[in-house]
């Protein structure tokens, strides 16, 4: 393949890496990643993946940019207040890397649209902020056999977990079902240190890149738990649960569920 001067220069620091090289970079350029949520986690994930040259990025979010988002959602600026997050994201990502395609989906994922949405993508990233969607995404990725990089943040804490259906545990192997509505606070109730979104989101982006180039060891079967107040990174080994309701030996969940949304 003949490489353009611009391509060589833009991706030179990747190509130099023995684990990436020209072939790894081509894999990144040919891959498609869907990021669900263009907020705290989705921002760093999308920025780094766009910069890395992921050929097609899908961004899903039904929200508009609010002033209270800007403390951590670094894709959006004060000039974007009131705009659709997907539109704001697309503009920033295309400016960062005009060589990529950004598909913006200004909608809420639910049991009726998610399978169609994830179908054409190679890797899915969960950057959502609530349990109903998190479980929905896990189940959809298990049923659709799509690798999923899960991330979640609250206060000074965060976690990352990589799910490769058929090859390791899923989110329901750890947590069988969502907590009862109202028992777990969300960011607007509990607060969030903005920079945590950067720590967890960039780890998610790194996992995506490793999945695509096929190098290194991912967080498959390892839940990474970050406590930024104490600055500790703890790893919890997770095994596939043979009784898991979605990926176990005799799954009881065979179709997607829309859990009750309380915010």
């Amino acid at each position: 393949m003949a490489y353009s001067e611009e391509w060589i220069e833009r991706y030179s620091r990747h190509i130099i890496l023995p684990e990436v090289g020209g072939k790894g970079q081509e894999k990144l350029n040919e891959s498609k990643v869907l990021i669900i949520g263009a907020g705290g986690l989705g921002s760093p994930v999308a920025l780094y993946l766009a910069a890395a040259g992921i050929g097609t990025l899908g961004i899903v979010d039904n929200d508009v940019v609010d002033l209270s988002n800007l403390q951590r959602q670094i894709l959006h600026t004060t000039n974007d207040l009131g705009r659709q997050k997907t539109e704001s994201a697309k503009e920033k990502l295309e400016a960062l890397n005009p060589e990529i395609t950004v598909n913006a989906y200004h909608e809420l994922v639910n049991s009726t649209n998610i399978m169609e949405m994830i179908k054409d993508y190679d890797v899915i990233v969960d950057g959502t902020d609530n349990f109903p969607t998190r479980f929905l995404i896990n189940d959809a990725c298990v049923l659709g056999n799509k690798p999923l990089v899960h991330g979640a943040i609250l206060r000074f804490d965060g976690q990352v977990f990589t799910i490769v259906p058929g090859a390791g545990p899923c989110y329901r192997c750890i947590f069988e079902e969502p907590p009862p509505p109202g028992t777990v606070p969300n960011c607007s109730q509990a607060g969030i240190l903005g920079a945590i979104a950067g720590i967890i989101g960039t780890i998610q982006a790194t996992e995506v890149l490793k999945l695509i180039i096929g190098k290194g060891r991912t967080l498959k079967g390892r839940l990474l738990v970050v406590d930024a107040l104490d600055m500790t990174f703890r790893e919890v080994k997770i095994r596939r649960n043979s009784a898991c309701p979605i990926c176990g030996d005799n799954p009881t969940i065979t179709q997607l569920i829309d859990y009750e949304w309380v915010c």
Binding site: I8, S12, I16
Partner: peptide
């Protein structure tokens, strides 16, 4: 490092 990058791509 572009000279090395070009060498590496050619060798690949």
């Amino acid at each position: 490092p572009i000279n090395f990058v070009k060498t590496k791509l050619k060798l690949e």
